[in-house]
Design a protein around this nucleic acid. Sequence first.
DNA 1: TTGCCAAGATTGTTAGACAACGTAGCATAT
DNA 2: ATATGCTACGTTGTCTAACAATCTTGGCAA
Lengths: 224, 224
Amino acid sequence: MLFEPASVLPETIYDDLRASIIAQIEVPGSAMTESAIALRFGVARPTAKTAIERLVAEGLLRRTAHHSARVPALSRDDIVDLYDTRAIIESAAIAALCAGGTIPAEALEAHRALLSSASADEPFATHDIAFHRALVAGQPSARLARMHALLMGEIELCIGQVQANHLLTAVDVAHQHQGILDAVTAGDSARATLLTHAHIVGSRDLLLAHVDSRPPTDGRPNHG
Amino acid sequence: MLFEPASVLPETIYDDLRASIIAQIEVPGSAMTESAIALRFGVARPTAKTAIERLVAEGLLRRTAHHSARVPALSRDDIVDLYDTRAIIESAAIAALCAGGTIPAEALEAHRALLSSASADEPFATHDIAFHRALVAGQPSARLARMHALLMGEIELCIGQVQANHLLTAVDVAHQHQGILDAVTAGDSARATLLTHAHIVGSRDLLLAHVDSRPPTDGRPNHG
DNA sequence: TTGCCAAGATTGTTAGACAACGTAGCATAT
DNA sequence: ATATGCTACGTTGTCTAACAATCTTGGCAA
């Protein structure tokens, strides 16, 4: 993903598990043992192991030595940290993109897809994420793109919640995206940075308000 | 490192190889095959493989499918990208540190060690790096610290060169560090951010001037 | 109730093997 | 002599099977 898809078989398992986690088919806290994954996909345990290790490296699973990997339940602090760091990285990336002044084709495509899913009232999280990924990928710094990719795994967990609970509509998101695109096209770096920051912090606050309104399903915040 | 040392044996190999690469015992371009590493450390090939994969993830090795991992020769563009991204991340981290207003104990310790190596005219790159790592680690955002750790692997490659060629003295570095510490202690976020940025960009420019003054060992800039 | 011990579960590590892929060198044809 | 295609080798990708080390859990005894 960041560098090379080293292999295809673990890649398949990785993709499948990743989708399961983000779609919250695997509830937070549930354990994923190497053996179980291996059995489920009909592969050897080491193969399942590499897939799990990739998800751990990406922050989508957590584990300690000799313990099963578990789907993390993001705390309020995690969400704040995640979005704030993302705002730093992505604002810098948009600023770098302004220097070039051209919008990547993939970003425009994702933007159109988002608009069409808005009128069809379909799930739009995928297109939202694709848009942001494309913008950052189109900017010249490879390291900044790498940082962003590392963050987006966990961010997808959050965006999935934003969409599932209808905290934002596709129209809202598309409108904010349009503003960013306009600023970049105009070469207005300050405005583009500001809008990007506001876009991200806005999503963060909506998600936080939602989390605060409904305390965690389990009443043990100080555990393990 | 970032999350958990999953295992001890690959960790040992990883540490050893990492040190070899940063000390430039392994010259850029040299190949490291899985079998060779396995033989050298007396372990199975998969064990060597995991160590190599960690180094690849950190940017200290590069490889493509069915090719040996190779120590990268950082290009001029790589150096610029690396330092500029580092400036973004680390400036943000120092700003976050100012909110707390307290200097981590490890940072002070590294600072003292740097001063003492200045008077003894010893290698100081280790303490320089430890100082920056400690400052970022002492700041509250776990994700920002993760980004920084990912960057520091390749940065160490550069700092090794700065020291080997005496582009900066330990006294210079310590003086700049002192300024950053003072600004953080005073809670002057703007000044701390500015000094951090200048410190990093200054190192970058020294290294670039050095690289420009002596063209690459091999006369093929447009290759691969 | 508390502490200890043993069994089960899980991961860490290894050995060995075969398959897939890339490269270099050789043989052949022009 | 040169260019082209093929073959053999080196390297990584992936798998199976097994043993070792470690953590947790349950039962038993004081």
